[in-house]
């Protein structure tokens, strides 16, 4: 809970996205900390800058664009923004890993799932072929994929959406990262599958003492998952509070409007 030992400390982060057509100031001075082992939610609507903030930490630019970053991103004693690309590659995946929304497009369709994980393990951890496969099967087992040794030889299209998301989580945790950034990890999934993925993230986080940055537009997703919530709007954090306070007593008008718009099961509407 305390910010005394943050694994990640972001100060006045700005991100300007430069594409052929336009220049957008997507993040306009964002500051926050994530402590070791802590889970922090980032909630806001599309275009609020939450995903750009996450990609800025990883120094990734949206396709076809260049991003100008400002401010500071301090991760476990290192300043990430001035780091060389080679050094950054070592941080990415190994120290900070990311899970994206769309499990369809994040995997290579023509390579078996096992081979994709083997490859990452060989590159990041230097494991040999056979050792890498053993670790791959172990990882698939940890994320709850039944018959992992057989499933490793299947192609992505042979997995359901929920199982594919489990594969991506297996890839993300393969190098034991200190921080996992999950960007809308359950948005494309059904409610029963969403519940399974959230339980999986919660369990992995507790077993590994991993920090979690959970990005979503859905307050229901952060409710049981994080200790603190940052609400983003227009490239800024407009409210930062503990998860209990955000739900009990939101102070910013925008947070209130967002919470009020969430459809609820316990409120009878005026349906014809």
């Amino acid at each position: 809970m305390t910010a005394s030992d943050p694994i990640l400390s972001v100060r006045d982060l700005t991100a300007r996205i430069v594409s052929r057509k336009q220049i957008v100031d997507a993040v306009k001075g964002v500051s926050f900390d994530i402590a070791r082992g802590e889970a922090v939610g980032f909630v806001g609507e599309s275009g609020c800058g939450k995903s750009v903030t996450a990609r800025a930490i990883m120094r990734l630019a949206p396709e076809g664009t260049r991003v100008e970053l400002g401010g500071s991103v301090h991760f476990d004693g290192q300043e990430l923004l001035p780091m060389s690309e080679a050094a950054m590659r070592d941080v990415r995946g190994r120290r900070i890993a990311m899970v994206f929304q769309d499990p369809m497009t994040s995997l290579n369709p023509v390579i078996t799932v096992g081979a994709q994980i083997d490859d990452i393990l060989r590159r990041h951890t230097g494991l040999s072929g056979r050792a890498a496969r053993a670790r791959t099967v172990e990882l698939l087992d940890q994320v709850g994929i039944p018959a992992p040794a057989q499933r490793a030889d299947d192609y992505p299209h042979q997995f359901s959406g929920g199982m594919r998301q489990r594969v991506l989580i297996a890839i993300a945790i393969s190098c034991d990262p200190d921080l996992l950034i999950a960007d809308e990890p359950t948005t494309a999934l059904d409610v029963t599958v969403q519940a399974q993925i959230l339980r999986l993230l919660l369990r992995l986080r507790e077993e590994r003492g991993m920090s979690l940055m959970l990005i979503t537009h859905d307050f229901g997703v952060v409710a049981g998952m994080v200790e603190r919530v940052n609400v983003m709007y227009g490239g800024r954090i407009v409210e930062a509070a503990s998860v209990d306070d955000i739900f009990r007593a939101p102070t910013h008008d925008y947070t209130r409007a967002l919470l009020a718009a969430v459809p609820r099961l316990d409120r009878h509407g005026v349906a014809p």
Binding site: A223, R264, L265
Partner: peptide, 12 residues
């Protein structure tokens, strides 16, 4: 049972 509820302690 799977649908998230907007109550952090209950959802936990």
């Amino acid at each position: 049972d799977s649908a998230p509820v907007l109550d952090p302690s209950l959802q936990r």
